[in-house]
Design a protein around this nucleic acid. Sequence first.
DNA 1: CTGAAAGCGCTTACAG
DNA 2: CTGAAAGCGCTTACAG
Lengths: 326, 326
Amino acid sequence: MQPKLKDIANALGVSPASVSNALRGTGRVSAELAERVRAEADRLGYRPGPAGRALRTGRSQMLGLILPDLSNPLFPRMAQAIQRQSETAGYGILIADSHGDRGGQEEAIARMLQRGVDALVIIPRRGTVIETLPVPHALIDTPSTPGNTVSADHRGGGATIVRHLAERGHSSLVLIGDSDASPVQRDRIAGMRESLGEGMTATTAWLEEDGISTCLEAIGRGATAIATTSDLVALQILGPLNEAGIEVPEQVALSGFDDLVFASVMRPALTTLVADSNAIGSHAIETLTAILEGRPSPPPMRVPMTLIPRASTALKTNPRQETIPC
Amino acid sequence: MQPKLKDIANALGVSPASVSNALRGTGRVSAELAERVRAEADRLGYRPGPAGRALRTGRSQMLGLILPDLSNPLFPRMAQAIQRQSETAGYGILIADSHGDRGGQEEAIARMLQRGVDALVIIPRRGTVIETLPVPHALIDTPSTPGNTVSADHRGGGATIVRHLAERGHSSLVLIGDSDASPVQRDRIAGMRESLGEGMTATTAWLEEDGISTCLEAIGRGATAIATTSDLVALQILGPLNEAGIEVPEQVALSGFDDLVFASVMRPALTTLVADSNAIGSHAIETLTAILEGRPSPPPMRVPMTLIPRASTALKTNPRQETIPC
DNA sequence: CTGAAAGCGCTTACAG
DNA sequence: CTGAAAGCGCTTACAG
């Protein structure tokens, strides 16, 4: 049986109120009594039970984390960062995924609220708008999403990879994503387009819309670099490129996004960009705990994406090279 | 403000006790009153608050999930399966990871207990023994781990891939894992070794112990197939093979384990084996809820691993082919 | 069949 | 500085 507050009070012949005050540093308690209480609490290994505290304070000391899809390879890092940060802040993390659809997201939020979470961290489904919620919440989506609390600077990442390719002599690019229904992917592509330099051209393609063909055609017309919105997209393009006899990076440069687990280990190793998940997680948690604890809450934050140059874009390309027959 | 039990009682002019009994189907309540209570509860959108219930019943209706490392690519699927199953059973899931070491695992367990979880699902760190715990727990490790509740049949998976390779004419194999400190990997390799047929030979290697060199040497001596313990290991071997001028699957067959996200999309697509995460998750949750709710708890379970044949082992190999110069 | 009462373990005004 | 009391929202014996 776990020791209770009353056990300490009885052992010391004082009231439970004084024990509680001594342990929390609230109310007036003499230093001497406080010390005796702490010693006895340590001896017994006492920890306040969550149920009694929650009932009295109205706070569960738990945060809910809503993910669109736990099996998405990008989310584990976020979940890990958020879990560790919230633990440091003294909150537990309840998880739920949105079961792949929008109704699922609303249900997941409703379940979390019923379980009494003090606040929510939400990584929303593509383009979902979060209605008013009865608890504070932090949104991790894209800087262009209204109400976004913190996220990677996807647009800046797009700009960075295009500059990287430009420095290597690439002037004709293919920009390719999975789906333009994704705000994250749209922002990455937008950032790429915005920073095309003088004389640079780019074809945009989406995997959903026969993007592989579009991509191969553009290469046939002289494109020398493919900037994708995700390592997974890059990996999916590698096969068709090989089959078409196009070598990476010798004939075409290729880049990804997110530094997924296979990016460093595939051949050629994939140039990619990644944001610091811990920075994102800690800003989300800091924002929430600030609100919960009455501190001033920080402004929204945009975490930069860092380029990780690898073999897939290592070669300098002569912008006037012959076009590859397709 | 969320409606309380008392609000329903007041609105109907009955006691909170009757409302509680009506809603839970316990105690004696007339059908007529039960119906009125349900109607009013629906109208108000009443849900019992978790704090009051937890304090009274001693149950939090939450399960803790302890993972060695949330960022491990294998765990998201498990976490997702467990989360969904426990949700169906009416339990929330608190997550914690072990921060990469054994002490971290013990701390994570202690934190979960302090938060009042009713039971734990533990995917233990390599070779960790779980001491006695004050709540029921389900262990997901390997069938050979004492106290294991449910897990994939890693040994059977090893046997399956070796038979698959044997059918394709391979008789000289390399079996390679990351680390023999991992019970899962040891079981997979053991299953492989056990089912080597007549006249088959195999070299075992570990990445940790310069396994790549061992592997290349074995191929130099005539091995025609590499069975790895993980898709990630297979991916890591592909580069050195390419550099050595060894083609997959033309000269050497290659297989993985776990069907990670890149396995189907890499080139060549990777033959692999996978267990049904939902089956594992639901057995773990069923075991725990059975104990918590006083039902007979099911025996330990071993979930079969299914072969997913892909291009990387598609070719029949002549066992007497020339050896490749190394 | 129904309701009044007690109590789960805490914290927080409040009185002394 | 310290303690007695009330109460957070529920559920469960128990009395009527």
